[in-house]
C-alpha cells in the first residue's frame, strides 16, 4: 500500500527518531513510503492562536503538497486532527473547499491507519519493560482515536502496561499555551508527571510529540529515570 508520510514539524526538527521509527514500522507492514519534501507545518500554532488568515497560507501549501497522496499518515493525533479541520476553514471557498475535504478524508493518525486501514492489531513488536500511556487530548477528543493505540500496545511482546491515573487530564502543553501561560502549564505537567511516577512505570508512551516534549522536559528536569517514547518507537521495537 502506498503511504505518503506527513512527518510534522516537531518530528522533523526535534524527534527525527520518531519519523525513522514510523517509516521502518510502516515498511515492515508492507507499505511503500513517500515523503514529499515541500511539506512544512499543518498551521495549527497560528490557527489556535487566532491567526487564522496567516495559518491559511500554510494550509494551502499542505493541500497542494498532499494532493496526489492515496493515504496520508502522520505520527500525531493533533496534526491529523488539524488536517481534518481544514474543510471547516475553507467552507464556501470555491477553489479550496473540495481539495480540503479530499485531504481530510485520506488523512490518518499512525495507529488509526494500522488498525483501521491495514487491519493489523499485532505488529509483531517486542519491547521489554513496564510502561504507561498518555492519551493525548486532540487524538482522543478531536480525532476520536481512543482504542487503536492500546489495541496495538496490548500485542507487543514483553510489554507490561499499567493504567495512568487521571489520564483524561491534559498534560498542559497546548502549543503556544505552554509559553504564554508557562506557570499554569508548568503546574499541569507537574501533576501529570506525579501521576506517571505513581504508576511505577519505567516508560511513558504517547502518540503526540508536543505532549511528549512537555512531559519529557519535566521528567528530565526532575531527574526521574523514566524514559519517554513515541508509540511508533515502541511498535518498531524488535
Amino acid at each position: 500500500m502506498k503511504v505518503t508520510l506527513f512527518a510534522t514539524c516537531l518530528v522533523d526538527l526535534f524527534q527525527s527518531n520518531v519519523g525513522k521509527a514510523t517509516v521502518e514500522l510502516l515498511e515492515r507492514l508492507g507499505c511503500e513510503i513517500d515523503f514529499p519534501e515541500s511539506q512544512i507545518c499543518c498551521g495549527q500554532p497560528a490557527y489556535n492562536s487566532g491567526y487564522t488568515k496567516d495559518s491559511k497560507e500554510a494550509m494551502k501549501k499542505m493541500i497542494r503538497t498532499f494532493a496526489d497522496a492515496e493515504h496520508i499518515v502522520t505520527p500525531s493525533g493533533s496534526c491529523a486532527a488539524m488536517f481534518k479541520e481544514y474543510p471547516v476553514l475553507f467552507q464556501g471557498d470555491v477553489e479550496w473547499e473540495k481539495k480540503a475535504i479530499s485531504l481530510a478524508e485520506k488523512t490518518y493518525e499512525l495507529t488509526q491507519f494500522i488498525v483501521d486501514v491495514l487491519k493489523v492489531t499485532d505488529v509483531g513488536a517486542t519491547f521489554k519493560g513496564k510502561a504507561t500511556y498518555h492519551t493525548s487530548c486532540h487524538m482522543t477528543r478531536l480525532l476520536k482515536v481512543k482504542e487503536a493505540p492500546s489495541i496495538l500496545l496490548s500485542h507487543v511482546k514483553g510489554l507490561e502496561m499499567t493504567p495512568l491515573p487521571d489520564a483524561q487530564n491534559c498534560c498542559g502543553f497546548g502549543g503556544t499555551f505552554s509559553v504564554k501561560m508557562g506557570d499554569i502549564s508548568g503546574q499541569m505537567v507537574e501533576e501529570k508527571v506525579c501521576n506517571i511516577q505513581d504508576t511505577g512505570a519505567d516508560f511513558l508512551i504517547g502518540g503526540d510529540s508536543g505532549c511528549l516534549m512537555n512531559i519529557g522536559g519535566r521528567i528530565q528536569r526532575k531527574g526521574e529515570p523514566i524514559q519517554v517514547l513515541h508509540i511508533a518507537e515502541v511498535l518498531n521495537g524488535m
Binding site: A7, V11, D12, L13, F14, Q15, S16, V18, G19, K20, V23, F35, E37, S178, V179, K180, G182, D183, S185, G186, Q187, V189, E190, M213, N214, G216, G217, R218, Q220, R221
Partner: peptide
C-alpha cells in the same frame, strides 16, 4: 537540552527542559 531558554522559551524552561534540535533533521535522514 536547554535549561534556560531565551525569549518566549524562558517561560517553558522555568519548569522543564526544552529539547535541543537534533543534529540531523528527519527530512535529511530520509
Amino acid at each position: 537540552s536547554i535549561s534556560k531558554g531565551p525569549g518566549p522559551l524562558k517561560s517553558w524552561t522555568e519548569s522543564r527542559e526544552f529539547p535541543a534540535p537534533g543534529k540531523e533533521s528527519f527530512r535529511d535522514w530520509f
